[in-house]
């Protein structure tokens, strides 16, 4: 399948300094109803992998270190 590089503003941002996924935490990945977050293999931190956000906020509210912030997706703002 042909692919293209598309840049865009993503709703979920992760503060890598606060994120403790490298210590085994997967809470944000577990609670996302759309399964759009994952732990990046290189950095060991949580990242938004798919722009399929319902901005419902469990990832942000359940994060034990306050590392996640969810913005309203740009198209809706």
């Amino acid at each position: 399948m042909s692919t293209a590089w598309v840049s865009g503003s993503l709703p979920v941002s992760v503060d890598a300094d606060k994120c403790i996924a490298d210590k085994g935490c997967t809470i944000c990945v577990d609670v996302c109803p759309l399964d759009v977050l994952e732990i990046d293999a290189t950095s060991g931190k949580a990242v938004m992998r798919y722009d399929e956000c319902w901005y419902c906020l469990p990832c942000e509210q359940d994060c034990p270190t306050g590392a996640i912030h969810v913005d309203i997706p740009y198209l809706l703002r």
Binding site: P33, L34, E52, C53, W54, C56, P73, L75, L76
Partner: peptide, 13 residues
């Protein structure tokens, strides 16, 4: 109307 696939009223799952 926003065109955002997952901006639905219902949980899009």
């Amino acid at each position: 109307a926003s065109g955002y696939l997952f901006g639905t009223y219902e949980n899009p799952t």
